[in-house]
Design a protein around this nucleic acid. Structure first.
Lengths: 338, 338
DNA sequence: CTGAAAGCGCTTACAG
DNA sequence: CTGAAAGCGCTTACAG
């Protein structure tokens, strides 16, 4: 394969000149630029990026870091929509995307990840950082790798969705419909910081109406559809009088709806169910799901834009994205007779 | 940050020796190895990978190439399961994963992708290559980048799922249940080679029973749930006597089921529906979906293993994975009265 | 078993 | 505006 010096030889100039033409430095005659460009085309030259990285310190690689934690990473629509937003911006800028999925323990992320941070491969990174166990962006900041956090850890520069506000919206919606016998399908608070904020939002909304939030029966799922079914079953067995279920994500809400149906009851006529996230299948579900839209695609996109600002030394301002209630068919006013 | 020569200095040896200890070359005394290891630990040294790549030609990066074509890449469960299988193997081997999503036109993949191939960043790649428009693994082979193709293009080394056999299984299942009024929800044959094989498999199964495949009404969807609804509607409007729908993927099957239900008809009592892929939500769907399991996670894993064999110079044998009928609740024997 | 030295293909002050 | 030269941090024959 052709190298820079092949190009220089063919064009009759020095390698320094070729390099400068490539990096678009000003100050050279139109004529030499043309000679160089012709030689590049003729040799079908393209730069050896590791060599450039060694000399310049820039790799044009950014990492997307998704801790490998709870239920299989690659099936979470939220994660995937973020990735999609990030990919779009990086592709536009000509950057390459390295996918890193560190395993987390209470001692922190695994060695492979730490080694990657010190590898000089990364111009920057975007990290999903919501696991209370350990932070994945903190070690990046220690090593001065430009980093945008999506979530709540290590919050130097971040983009977040307003989880507290979203939790409030969900609870308010249910309360507005007149429900007072409300069950909650949550997730262990050791699993995800963002979800903890949704819970406090729900609490605020209930207490703002003078209701005792702690009186609402709560079950702990694990994000999956199956756990939604199981926890709905547990909740309804103990509290047959519930008229509404608030679920911390859509997949558990879908599981809950399936369980309720299997009981011969109707959603929303007998029991209302609200989810959270607005995943793509939420709208097309047999009972289109009422849920909270959490801006997953946008947050990936915004994070990538902030990262490039950071890399270019521009000032960056962290962002909190608002959520939005999406009212569909799985919720309805509480029925008189119940 | 500490460099190799810092380590050499501290250990009192040459950089050549440190390098050899790091690469686990035999032939050095236990004593020098210990000195070197102590110095590495003390300085918290970890190698500059671009420098190593320049000197050795190896980067420990492999690319996963998913052409950016039809309906948003990141929402296709098949793609994601493959990615998951690949990630698992790469993580185990300590390799980094670069995600490349070239845009395809009839002139081939975009320039950014071609530039990546010549960048010297890649030790190898795994490419999903099923779009008739253009091949993404062919340019890699031209540049001698070790490449495993998942799919039908540029088939030097490949892993495939037996799409022809899977198509046969789907059609046989429906025929075994006694159906003869069968509608097909397909996809334009310019979109995906693997799907074309499913179609020929379906044809073979029908013709093996002496049936005229071309008499089955066919509609063209676009993989999405919505298109499944729309095409089911079109098909049933024209042919109200259909007792079964064969769909080329699960999402369209789910859409079809939703449409049938919205008509007040039942699945499978009135109309049977079979999908293809066995995506995670297929089992948990309101009417658990009968479908063809296509080994998505396994094919990613196998592709990664083959790639490492190829990189290490071992002989590699391409693989065709068998499919499997997963019989659930969306299909049933044709009812007598119809 | 260990080290001196060249070289991988770029970029970047520094002179001119 | 252009070029000579040093240097980025490794690896790898080659001697010894």
């Amino acid at each position: 394969m052709a190298t820079l010096s092949d190009v220089a030889k063919l064009a009759g100039v020095s390698t320094a000149t070729v390099s400068k033409v490539l990096s678009n430095t000003p100050y050279f005659t139109e004529e030499t630029r043309l000679k160089v460009e012709r030689a590049i085309k003729e040799l079908n030259y393209s730069p050896n990026l590791p060599a450039r990285a060694l000399a310049s310190g820039r790799t044009e690689i950014i990492a997307v870091v998704f801790p490998y934690i709870y239920d299989p990473l690659f099936t979470d629509p939220f994660v995937l929509h973020m990735l999609q937003g990030i990919e779009a911006v990086c592709h536009e800028r000509g950057y390459n995307l390295l996918l890193s999925t560190p395993r987390l323990t209470f001692e922190g992320p695994d060695d492979l990840y730490l080694r990657l941070l010190r590898s000089h491969y990364l111009d920057g990174m975007i990290a999903l950082d919501n696991v209370p166990l350990a932070s994945v962006s903190e070690p990046a900041r220690q090593r001065d790798i430009p980093c945008i956090t999506i979530g709540y850890h290590a919050t130097h520069h971040y983009v977040r969705t307003d989880d507290h506000g979203g939790g409030m919206q969900a609870m308010q919606h249910i309360l507005d419909l007149g429900h007072r016998q409300i069950g909650i399908i949550s997730v262990s608070d050791s699993l995800n910081i963002a979800l903890n904020h949704r819970l406090t939002g729900m609490r605020s909304a209930a207490e703002a109406r003078g209701l005792n939030y702690d009186a609402f029966p709560t079950a702990q799922g694990d994000f999956s559809v199956d756990s939604g079914m199981a926890e709905a079953a547990a909740l309804l067995a103990q509290h047959p009088d519930l008229t509404a279920l608030v679920c911390l994500n859509d997949r558990m809400a879908m599981g809950a709806i399936q369980y309720i149906r299997s009981l011969g009851k109707r959603v929303p006529e007998d029991i209302s169910v609200i989810g959270y996230d607005d995943i793509p299948t939420a709208a097309g579900f047999a009972t289109p799901l009422t849920t909270i839209f959490n801006q997953a695609p946008t947050s990936g996109q915004v994070a990538a834009q902030l990262l490039f600002d950071l890399i270019e030394g521009k000032p960056v301002q962290s962002v909190v994205l608002p959520t939005q209630l999406v009212s569909r068919a799985s919720t309805a006013p509480v029925s008189r007779e119940s």
